[in-house]
Design a protein around this nucleic acid. Structure first.
Lengths: 207, 207
DNA sequence: CCTAACATACCGTCCAGTCGGAATCTACGG
DNA sequence: CCGTAGATTCCGACTGGACGGTATGTTAGG
């Protein structure tokens, strides 16, 4: 095996661009974490993909976990913004839920790797970052709970179903999309989003 | 740091019970994989939990991956048996799907660790075992596809929804249960199973 | 010329898998 | 029933490599 010395990028002929380097490292880490998992990915792999060296990595980030936590944060922010926007724009619980499902599915297809990392590598977060993530997630869950509860109170949603379970069902359905959806042209994300929203709201059995 | 010598179990006063040892190792591995992930768990941890040593582990299994693949197989067999039984017992696609969802949810609650391992550590399977798992999973997916397609053809299911998406929605909803359900007495697995089956079949919106 | 932005060599640790041997079990001849 | 040879089951020290992180040197920008 040749010695571990590789030829770093040394961008546009001798010029630093720290923000680009940082983003490149984040993108590489995201891609690799999504494909191989957190423990399945070494820092060496990340820097090779970004065509820099470990020095650059540890200059921009405190640790490998640090990067994992940043990925989590980014995804949670996207989710939060989406749900806040919908709650402000739409009134009826039925249409709120429909929009939340549609938006969730679209987000999942757009941020596929984020979702994969988020739901599969969560356990490797510890300490402060783990607590932060939990807090933010609980907030999102509660927002959805409130939608369903309001719908039940207004007689719009079936009162026999436990709201908590309904929310988890909807979340699971949407999150699961990352396990199978691929943009290979045979099915648009919009189509999937509509189908799943219809499934959750109207059910599969014809009326 | 003290040397890595530990006191193995040496069961009921000097007597080998290979089958018990094997099962103990499998159980330990399942528990640890479920909690800490495949790469997050060392063989040393597995054997310590089973109160044996690495010699015993590598006597019973070829590798760490070997154990992972056995866990996958066991879960897939349980799923297959369940769906075969339902297809043989029930006729109507509606009731078939209802039973499949109910049974899936119950299986997920009973085999929580299996499910966690199955869906989060799949990528660490390679070669033959990975191909075997994929083949078996495709078979299960197809069986569910057929149920939905039959239902649509008989005019029982909403024809606007792509069957494929409906199946993935149902599977996601059920599989997701492992992320949140805990047997702490506040909600029975039966209740969850019924709620999710109702959600998928009749939807959340009142008729 | 000082500091940010890297590069590179290196360290301590951990870990999957190995190996020689010890303990135990089984089969069988006497 | 006894003895014993061979196979099975398990022990535990060990290895070679990989990996996260560090320390120190080098280069570019203000």
């Amino acid at each position: 095996m040749a010695p571990r010395t590789q030829t770093p990028r040394r961008k546009t002929r001798g010029s630093y661009d720290p923000e680009q380097t940082r983003q490149l490292l984040l993108d590489s880490a995201l891609e690799l974490f999504g494909d191989q998992g957190f423990h399945g990915t070494s820092v060496q792999e990340i820097v090779e993909r970004a065509q820099v060296t470990k020095g650059a990595f540890y200059h921009h980030f405190e640790s490998k976990q640090d990067v994992l936590s940043l990925i989590h944060d980014e995804f949670l922010d996207v989710q939060r913004e989406a749900i806040e926007r919908i709650l402000a724009e739409v009134d009826s619980p039925v249409e709120q839920l429909r929009e939340v499902i549609r938006e969730s599915v679209l987000t999942v297809t757009r941020y596929r790797q984020h979702v994969a990392v988020f739901f599969q590598e969560r356990r490797y977060l510890t300490g402060r970052p783990a607590a932060d993530v939990k807090r933010k997630r609980d907030k999102l869950d509660k927002a959805m709970d409130d939608i369903v509860i309001a719908g039940v109170e207004q007689g719009l949603f079936d009162a026999r179903i436990t709201p908590r379970v309904a929310v988890f069902g909807v979340v699971g359905m949407s999150a699961w999309v990352h396990q199978w959806y691929r943009e290979d042209g045979t099915m648009s994300a919009e189509q999937v989003a509509d189908d799943l929203a219809n499934l959750a709201l109207d059910g599969l059995v014809v009326r």
